[in-house]
Design a protein around this nucleic acid. Structure first.
Lengths: 249, 249
DNA sequence: GTTTTAATTGCCGTTTAGTGCATATTTATA
DNA sequence: TATAAATATGCACTAAACGGCAATTAAAAC
């Protein structure tokens, strides 16, 4: 059995029973307790479950749907989120757009992290609620039927009055020549506005999404300060971005 | 059983009964009283409960996040939510304020329910996201550290442009003479504004919260169209409200 | 298809966490 | 104040966690 398969089973069990025991899992999956322990450690690093003595439990604030997402996707976002975290400093104004890498990022922030954070994601906002030193602002608006994210005029209006030190964008498409594009018109507009109201622009993009082009233009590459993918900085796939002067993290 | 699991059970029991005894817990959970005592010590160090001789009691300053998990109240909220549901009709504009009964209500809506719903609760909005025929609008703003609810100027501004057919308010205090009051100033203002932007005002209130008065006035009883509690309409406790002309559901 | 490389896993010795028990001390209250 | 119950403390035992290492297995490169 593959590790990934096993970890998905573990997540499934946590969603169903709210908890797992290392020793029973070990027997059930025919691996040593050490392996289970390593699995639980990895899974808990993503932030949706909590490792405890003897097993693991679901994080009470995380909905089942999030926990049971395929582990392979979560891991890629975790790598991105970890890099993003190292780019953040305390006491700044941050805009977090979207709910993929940003959700994981919100899960791995140090408990005493201090900042003012704006977000259009219900999931991210719910997560940030737990942090006593973070001032969270939900950007209000109509909730899309595609993902639990606000968009529309209200978000645009709210952004008009904001300036952030740094914004963290989920890039669904990033092309070396065309720049940042999006499949949703409203979301493209929102991203554009966020970029123009932030001193630093960090695009978080899965490597398989680089190179693609979506119908709605956000901004050209020159507006992007840094690009974070799950790849190493020196990966050949990213050299064209480096040539354009983008900082790779 | 995992330690955390056991402590969750203890917390739950304290939240429900306001107190626990070490010796009964010891029998119930099949561990020594020493272990229970250590659990209570740990929980009290975190600050959620207060250790007393012979057991522990609920801490008066328990964070809202924990209170909201009250199991016993869930039943009462369900009764309220069911009544509220019967008051709703399709294709209306609804404001749902707060996340107790409204969250349950959002969970029991028929899957094809059609409406435009505004809410200041992250939980409610997240739940409503699942409904294909509901247009959900999240009222943006600063997220309170007490519960995952937006408040502040942005909410007020957003409300200014809205008129609803019906609003569903979580009433934390409802007094026959004083009317609706709230313990939080901003939230009181928001409720007031919601009331004045709705054709029908439904107050959802646990019976034990009727009669109490909180520091910040929302509106007098005359602004309330209907009152929903978990009690029967003809319960004696509610007669004083009937005398004031409130419709009891 | 084979070789090379990297990831995964199990094992082992050591360390730590959790639990129960014995005993001394404190607390509630009759 | 007497007395029974509850608590604190120290100790011992067990199960789990940790870190390093070697063997195995999967993935990548050739």
């Amino acid at each position: 059995m593959l590790k990934e398969e096993r970890q998905n089973i573990i997540l499934e069990e946590i969603v169903n029973n709210n908890k797992v025991h290392s020793n029973t899992l070990s027997k059930k999956l025919n691996v040593s307790e050490d392996t289970i322990r390593r699995d639980l450690k990895e899974l808990s690093e993503i932030g949706h479950i909590k490792k405890v003595h003897g097993g693991a439990m679901a994080n009470p604030t995380v909905p089942a749907a999030i926990i049971s997402q395929k582990i392979s996707d979560q891991k890629e976002h975790l790598i991105i989120a970890q890099k993003a975290l190292s780019s953040l400093v305390d006491h700044k104004v941050i805009i977090m757009e979207g709910d993929e890498s940003n959700l994981i990022l919100a899960s791995i922030l140090p408990p005493d992290f201090s900042a003012t954070i704006f977000t259009n994601s219900l999931k991210v906002a719910t997560r940030l609620f737990e942090f006593p030193n973070i001032e969270t602002f939900m950007l209000g608006g109509k909730i899309s039927h595609r993902s639990p994210i606000t968009s529309g005029l209200e978000v645009m209006d709210a952004l008009a009055d904001i300036h952030a030190d740094i914004c963290l964008l989920e890039a669904t498409s990033l092309h070396v020549d065309i720049g940042l594009t999006d499949g949703d018109r409203e979301r493209a507009q929102i991203k554009k506005k966020i970029i123009n109201h932030s001193s630093n622009v960090i695009a978080m993009c899965l490597s398989r999404r680089t190179g693609s082009i979506k119908p709605f233009k956000v901004e050209g590459l020159e507006k992007i300060t840094s690009l974070i993918t799950e790849l190493n900085e020196d990966d050949a796939q990213l050299s064209s971005f480096i040539n354009k002067g983008i900082r790779i993290v």
